[in-house]
Design a protein around this nucleic acid. Structure first.
Lengths: 157, 157
DNA sequence: CCAATTTAGATGCATTTGCATCTACTGCCT
DNA sequence: AGGCAGTAGATGCAAATGCATCTAAATTGG
């Protein structure tokens, strides 16, 4: 993604991002080759996962969009598909007639848990042998810090 | 992508991956909102970038596919588009009649450099303020280590 | 040396994605 | 209240993607 040496701050940042990005691609490649992605694409699972983590159970389409690397329209249609498959339910937001609230159906929650278990297994089989627990904690700390420093995400138009 | 606590090795790995993945999504979101992606999509730029880094200048389609999160057929068509736009040139591999070798055209190299400069600026503006140089180096070390520990990538069918 | 298997890429076709636009609702400002 | 700008999602349509399959070239085994 960036350039070649390793001296200036600009270069360092670019190489850091490049490395992060490539690692993400490599891990994702491995994950996608497993059977867990047979039933649900990444983004679809990601929506179920995010909903499963939501305390109130209901989440605005809007906020969902912040988590996912998808345009607003694509997310709209993705959710439409999930609804058609009976995995999520929707409801117009009570305080805002424009908004849509989503939650998992029982079936959706079940599927999320099932796939989630597979993913956790796969991930741990990939990351576990690669980095010590201390290294994993440090990596998590750094990526959390990076994400938190970015501030609010730009809404995709 | 994973679960919630923070004790078992399996959980730690899952949470680490989740954090890495979310950071990647967040940074990518920011990058994509910039003007640099107006001319070329991520995967398209990535191909030009990878070619620009290739010592011999020529690269097998095959090997390109390892770098990119795309199916073989999608990459095939992506390259076709790049060729049509005059950004890359192709040639049948001299030692293997099935293979295809690619290289940047002058125009392709020019465009890669131009977009590359923008990206490096954008990235440095995002990552630079978020992490100290030492943290960036450590992050790079960890993501490199992770990627190198994964072994050869599974070919996408 | 030839048939059978494997590998690299290309292609048909259905699905997914994104951009631009449209509609409906909110909130503000006078 | 009434109009006006801004926001949340939906939709038409073209482009990109993935899966299955196909072709051609290389490799293997007899």
């Amino acid at each position: 993604m960036a350039a070649g040496g390793s001296e200036s701050p600009v270069r360092l940042a670019a190489e850091t991002w490049e490395s992060l990005f490539r690692a993400q691609v490599a891990v994702m490649r491995k994950l996608q080759s497993g059977p867990a992605f047979r039933k649900l694409a990444l983004n679809e699972y990601d929506v179920l996962f995010t909903l499963s983590r939501c305390p109130s159970g209901w989440l605005r389409l809007n906020e969902l969009n912040d988590n996912v690397l998808l345009s607003q329209s694509s997310l709209s249609r993705l959710v439409e598909r999930l609804e058609k498959r009976g995995l999520v339910a929707r409801m117009t937001a009570p305080e805002d007639g424009r908004g849509v609230l989503l939650k998992l159906t029982d079936e959706g929650r079940e599927l999320q848990k099932e796939i989630g278990r597979e993913h956790v297994r796969d991930i741990s089989a990939l990351v576990g042998p690669a980095l010590t627990p201390a290294e994993q904690k440090e990596l998590m700390r750094l990526t959390d810090k990076l994400r938190n420093s970015l501030g609010p995400l730009p809404r995709k138009r």
